[in-house]
Amino acid sequence: MSVTTAPRARRASARRAAAGYLFIAPFMVVFVAMLVVPLLYAGYLSLFREQLIGGTTFVGLDNYVRALTDERLLGGVLRVAEFFLIQVPLMLLLGLLFALALDSGMLWLSRFIRLGIFVPYAVPSVVAALMWGYLYGPEFGPIAQLAGTLGLPAPNLLGGDLMLGSLANIVTWEFAGYNMIILYAALRAIPSELYEAAAVDGAGAWRTAWSVKIPALRPALMMALIFSVIGSFQLFNEPQLMQRLAPNVIDNAYTPNLYAYSLAFTSQDLNYAAAVSFLLGVVIVVVSYTVQLAITRRRT
């Protein structure tokens, strides 16, 4: 009996494995064609240099060496790092507060509020940047006019000093609701026994939030944080659109992504742009990993 069942079982499991590969095939095909191949091609491109006069030559890692000493690139990386350090904690904190408030069940019209906070995420970032650009307008924008009627000096929200903050405000407005939904969903998944136990132990709403809810949110917060690392370092849409309004504040190297774009499409330097993109990818991996490591180490 055992002699006959073993091959049959093996055959069945092989068939099951084949079915598995079949199921992931559509994904793998698209993944390879749209991500892996372009990535390899970009890597290949980054090893060459093409000139208007003189054509294409193989230069090995020259483009990477150049990028590592490129002040404009380093300046952009530092700027988005600063952006990340200031904007992301603020945005996640807001998302967390909203999620906890909604989950507490003490809000009136909670569905309406939830939708209201989430709606900015549904607004295309192009529209958001244009809308905020209008609000920020230094002379005829509503903020400036309000300041004017109150007899206060209007802050130049599109000026060099405040621009990063203005951008951070747009991004926070867009994504706080998105993070709230992630955290809120995670809160809903917490088993109610924990709350009962906390109640039996005499914990109030604040105590429950601090000692039960937030620790249970750790994986969700972790995910939101990693997404935010990537989002910050790839900042592109918002500065690109604000560039029209403040062309001399936001230059073409304001963020690394903006720099790579302008290298490729303004400077016709696809090869160097590919190298810059690769390096930016490395920076993101390193930062993401560092963040993850820092947080998991603290837990143990």
Binding site: L52, P247, N248, T266, S267, Q268
Partner: peptide
């Protein structure tokens, strides 16, 4: 023969000095 680059560099040099 590289107009895009020239314009973009102008914004960041002459244009910027005018704005600032």
């Amino acid at each position: 023969p590289f107009m895009d680059q020239t314009v973009s560099d102008w914004d960041e040099t002459v244009g910027k000095s005018l704005a600032d």
